[in-house]
């Protein structure tokens, strides 16, 4: 008996991406550059986050034709973003046969109350989180992979660091709690008790946890990996840098050798200019993407 679209198959693809770099791209040409540089997957967008920030307006799922063209031109898995709660966009991407869907705060949310019921889909989903409660709620909804939200399009790693540190310390805290306290914790985090108990017993999330949102250099990637990320998403950091191909290769190598300062030194040299970057304090509260869909 063949079983398709099971949680094992969905989270299994995420396991295969571990130790790798997933790169945002907006064209077939960029997808090929990413694949050649060693990306484990590409994320198709209409605009990269830094430009979404600049342009404003409503950011939606990319044109399915663009996504299809990318699927036809690279052999690595292809991901695409849908708006939070926009299950119709997700249905379209599932019909297209994309490999992974990112229900992403980078796009303009479509539903302020509900996320997509991801358990109903055969395609795996990745969702962003700023803390453990958010991560657990997304997993309860069927997410097969979690990433930090960070603050996309800023080239500033500080928020991704904060989110990863918080998630890691909250997991550690759970492992020391008694059963009675876990019941209360599950309520506080608005997550299912079964999931909270599993995390407490295993000391980790039941799905892969990547870093995302502001990673712009090989050193940023190594930092996130050392803080416990199992891989990284790089959005604007590559194609807003002076030399995308060189930067992409360097970040791939830094993600593998995150614990090896000599390799990190070697790959960090002569990269040209990294993306400009933004101070988080210069962003208006309402423009913070991480506050969307919690």
């Amino acid at each position: 008996m063949k079983k398709m679209g099971t949680f094992k198959v969905k989270s299994g693809l995420a396991e295969m991406l571990k130790g790798g770099v997933i790169m945002d791209i907006v064209s077939v040409e960029q997808a090929k550059i990413a694949e050649e540089a060693g990306a484990v997957s590409v994320m198709v967008l209409e605009r990269i986050p830094a430009d979404i920030r600049k342009v404003g307006g409503v950011a939606r799922m990319a044109d399915p034709q663009l996504i299809k063209d990318v699927m036809d031109s690279v052999t690595i898995p292809v991901m695409a973003k849908v708006r939070i709660g926009h299950f119709a966009e997700a249905q379209i991407l599932q019909a297209l046969g994309v490999d992974f869907i990112d229900e992403s705060e980078v796009l303009t949310p479509a539903d302020e109350q509900y996320h997509i019921n991801k358990n109903k889909f055969e395609i795996p989903f990745v969702c962003g989180a700023t803390n453990l409660g958010e991560a657990l709620r997304r997993i309860d909804e069927g997410a097969a992979m979690i990433r930090t939200k960070g603050e996309a399009g800023t080239g500033n790693v500080v928020e991704a660091v904060r989110h990863m540190r918080l998630i890691m310390s909250e997991i550690k805290e759970l492992t020391s709690l008694s059963e009675d306290k876990l019941i209360t914790t599950a309520k506080e985090k608005e997550a299912s008790y079964e999931l909270v108990k599993w995390v407490a017993e295993n000391g980790k999330l039941p799905v892969v946890n990547f870093a995302a949102g502001g990673i712009a250099t090989p050193a940023d990637a190594a930092l996130m990996m050392q803080l416990g990320a199992e891989g990284v998403f790089v959005g604007s950091g590559i194609f807003k840098s002076e030399n995308p191909s060189v930067m992409a290769k360097a970040i791939v190598r830094a993600t593998t050798y995150f614990n090896d300062p000599e390799v990190l030194l070697e790959v960090s040299r002569n990269l040209g200019e990294a993306m400009m970057g933004l101070q988080i304090s210069q962003i208006e509260e309402v423009d913070l993407l991480q506050k969307r869909g919690i």
Partner: peptide, 15 residues
């Protein structure tokens, strides 16, 4: 042959 069964939607568990 890589990806010979298809894309992720064709991934499966089978005994």
């Amino acid at each position: 042959r890589r990806n010979a069964f298809g894309r992720q939607i064709d991934s499966m568990e089978i005994d």
